[in-house]
Amino acid sequence: MRTRTEGRTWTGSGLKFAGLGHYFPRHQRRHDTEVTISGRTYGPEAAAELGVRSLHVADEDETLEFMAVRAAEAALANAGREAGEADLVILANWTDRQWIPEIAPGVAHQLGADKALAFDVCGACTGFVHGVQTAASMLSAHPGWQRAVVVAADRFTRRARPGTRGQLVFGDAAGAVVLEKGDPDDPSGLLDSVLDCDSTEADTVAARPPEGFLRPKPELIDLAVRSSLRVADNVLSRNELKTSDIDWLVPHPGNNAIHAGVRDGLDLDPAKFLTNFATRGNTGCASIPIALSEFTESGVLNSGDLVLSTAVGSGWYYGGLLYRL
């Protein structure tokens, strides 16, 4: 695998996650009993093997824009900010992309952030990393800008091919952060980010018209593990850290096999591997921000914790964020 860039360090920039928010669709489907999806019946043993006890399925009125707005509102409230204070709104999404307009301007308008520059990014399941790195770059480049709302939302259930076990893994959700400039001497905040692309592996996972159902190749798991480990090693070495120095690894969760490969490859204490995969499933680009929001709200994550987040996605993209809450 080739690494094209060395990423960008944000230490001393004053950039930090000032607010976190999430939205889970109303319907949470449980897998602890027999469940029938698209005409196929799965017993609880199938879900147990896959590691997903439940996940959320968006109703028709819970559009991608609807979910994104709710997550962004929650993040702004958590930050104690009004939508009109946002200079930038970035929406990461891959499951509901359209020709025009981009979805982000509609999200910004519903929020009341009508003066913000709003646009979409993709990057598949690395979308949140892509959005945060883009926001950090733009905030740093514009002296008058102070904050960005970065939203990641996917309705992954719509990309599961009927009759496959992906229907027991893919869930719907939206997560958001408020990234804003603060005191450069504050030890908390965004410390580093990296996002790279290996185009030779671009077709490892695809979802193409007309149905848009996910089509992974058998080598996906090995590639995802190798890519995640490369990101982690890169970010940790750049910052002169060891795996034992981080408080938490909050990755984009793919499946149990990928999780095991990453934990073993990093020699990570399993107690430091933090996802909500078991109760929310694989929620695409929303997976990292919903975990940050949910686990901060519940008190698992705390101010001062040093967190590494890694993600991989079709393209083939692999990236990560290092930050102190």
Rank of each mutant, 00 (worst) to 15 (best):
I90M: 01
G189E: 08
R97C: 12
V129A: 02
L139V: 13
Q110R: 15
L195E: 01
N93D: 00
G123N: 07
S140L: 15
D120Y: 09
I103D: 00
G84W: 03
L139T: 08
G127N: 07
G127S: 10
A160D: 07
Q98G: 00
D198N: 13
W99C: 02
V149A: 04
A207L: 12
G144R: 07
H130E: 02
G175C: 06
V129G: 03
G131F: 00
R208C: 01
F128G: 11
K181L: 13
G189Q: 12
L139H: 07
P216E: 09
G123I: 01
A176Q: 01
V89Q: 10
A153I: 00
E85K: 05
F119S: 09
G189N: 11
T134S: 11
A206K: 06
D114N: 13
D183V: 10
E219N: 10
A141I: 01
L190M: 05
W94K: 01
A141C: 01
G123C: 04
A108V: 11
R159V: 15
R226S: 13
G127I: 13
T200E: 12
G127M: 14
D87A: 11
S199D: 07
V129I: 15
G127L: 11
G84Y: 02
W99M: 12
R215D: 10
L220T: 13
T95M: 15
D96I: 00
M138W: 14
D196Q: 08
V132H: 03
A116F: 03
Q167S: 04
P143Q: 07
S199L: 12
L91D: 03
V151K: 00
V225D: 13
F170H: 07
A92N: 06
V205C: 14
V132L: 12
N93W: 00
A176P: 00
P162H: 10
P218Y: 09
M138H: 05
D154V: 09
L88Q: 03
E180A: 12
R97H: 07
V178F: 10
C125F: 11
D185T: 15
V205Y: 08
G131S: 06
P187Y: 11
D196L: 12
G171C: 11
T204Y: 12
A152E: 04
V169E: 09
R158F: 04
P105A: 04
A152L: 10
G171F: 13
V89T: 02
V151Q: 01
A173R: 02
P162D: 09
L191S: 08
G175E: 05
T95E: 05
V151T: 01
L168N: 03
F213M: 04
D96C: 08
Q133T: 15
D186G: 09
R161E: 15
E201N: 09
S140T: 08
L111P: 02
K181H: 14
A113H: 04
A153K: 01
V151P: 02
K181C: 11
C197T: 13
G106D: 04
G175T: 07
A152T: 08
Q98T: 08
D120T: 10
P143F: 03
I103G: 00
H109A: 10
V150Y: 02
L190D: 05
G166M: 12
A148P: 02
V149T: 01
Q167P: 03
D196N: 15
D185N: 14
L223H: 08
K217T: 15
E180M: 09
D87R: 05
L111N: 03
A160Y: 07
S193H: 10
M138Q: 09
G106F: 06
H130F: 15
E102F: 03
